[in-house]
């Protein structure tokens, strides 16, 4: 699946998006897999209270399923308007 990062998550991970092969069932499991990839990911996902997630472009929670998802995006709280 495609994993996307926005704002300071993109800066900390160092990538806007990447293709990820995963067996994770939920967003939270995917985050644990990503954190194990290295320091940049560990720093980006250090404070999960400051991270929001969308699965296939719908805002959701960390416990959400990612089975069959094409796109998972991580970003800070939104500041539109």
């Amino acid at each position: 699946m495609q994993v996307l990062y926005f704002a300071w998550l993109r800066e900390r991970v160092g990538l806007p998006r990447e293709e990820v092969e995963t067996s994770a069932a939920t967003v939270a499991e995917l985050v644990e897999e990503l954190k194990a990839r290295g320091e940049r990911y560990a720093v980006a996902f250090k404070d999960m209270a400051a991270v929001r997630v969308a699965v296939d472009q719908e805002l959701t929670e960390l416990g959400a399923s990612i089975k069959g998802a094409r796109e998972v995006a991580f970003f800070p709280p939104m500041t539109g308007g």
């Binding site: 704002a7 970003f75 800070p76 709280p77 500041t79 539109g80 308007g81």
Partner: peptide, 25 residues
């Protein structure tokens, strides 16, 4: 709803990302 449910993020020229405001939530 635009303020805190539309996926936009503001970054100031000084380099800092604008924090979400509790008042908006």
């Amino acid at each position: 709803f635009l303020k805190s449910r539309a996926p936009f993020w503001k970054k100031e020229a000084g380099g800092g990302w604008v924090d979400a405001r509790e008042a908006d939530e």
